[in-house]
């Protein structure tokens, strides 16, 4: 039976799980890799924020927690990195789930409409041009808020 199944899957070449390399670690991240400053560390840092940074490494989950460079107070910037594309969309519209998540991560707990409106109004200052990076966006956002 296994041989038979082998033939089938060879036909498929790529099984569902094959493409799902991401379900362990890796893939998926290529999206942010090219235009980010700290994206390669995101996986590690997001883990590091809430989990003992050594865990991922020692339990053999490879790639996931190799870096623990960034401390938890930088959670906002990592959220911005990881959700850069979606934040760009939500900020221009002044609403959206990714923007709400961002608000919470940076510690805003007030009225979302207000937050959304403010970000939207200042969109041009936050995303200055088409090359604005996630980190610049985050800095600009802080300047707008403060």
């Amino acid at each position: 039976m296994k041989l038979f199944v082998g033939i089938i899957v060879l036909f498929l070449t790529f099984s569902a799980y094959a493409v799902d390399k991401s379900s362990g670690c890796g893939a998926g991240w290529y999206v942010t890799k090219r235009n980010s400053l700290v994206s390669s560390t995101i996986r590690g840092t997001t883990n590091a924020i809430f989990f003992n940074a050594t865990l991922g490494m020692t339990s053999g989950t490879m790639n996931c927690a190799r870096h623990s460079i960034v401390k938890s107070e930088k959670r906002g910037i990592h959220y911005a990195e990881a959700n850069f594309h979606q934040l760009m969309v939500d900020m221009s519209r002044g609403e959206g789930e990714f923007l709400e998540g961002f608000a919470h991560v940076v510690g805003y707990s007030g009225d979302m409409k207000l937050f959304g409106g403010m970000v939207q109004q200042n969109f041009g200052d936050i995303f200055v041009n088409s090359d604005t990076t996630a980190q610049e966006m985050y800095e600009n956002f802080k300047n707008v808020v403060i």
Binding site: V5, G6, Y17, S22, Y30, S59, F98, G101
Partner: peptide, 29 residues
């Protein structure tokens, strides 16, 4: 394919923020 069918890969558990999965599946893929 060979490893996947006959064994050879190890499966692990991992944790990550949900937004990471949403970005990965909903948007990237």
């Amino acid at each position: 394919v060979f490893y996947g069918l006959f064994g050879g890969y190890k499966g692990y558990f991992n944790f990550m923020p949900y937004y990471q999965k949403v970005n990965e599946y909903n948007n990237s893929e």
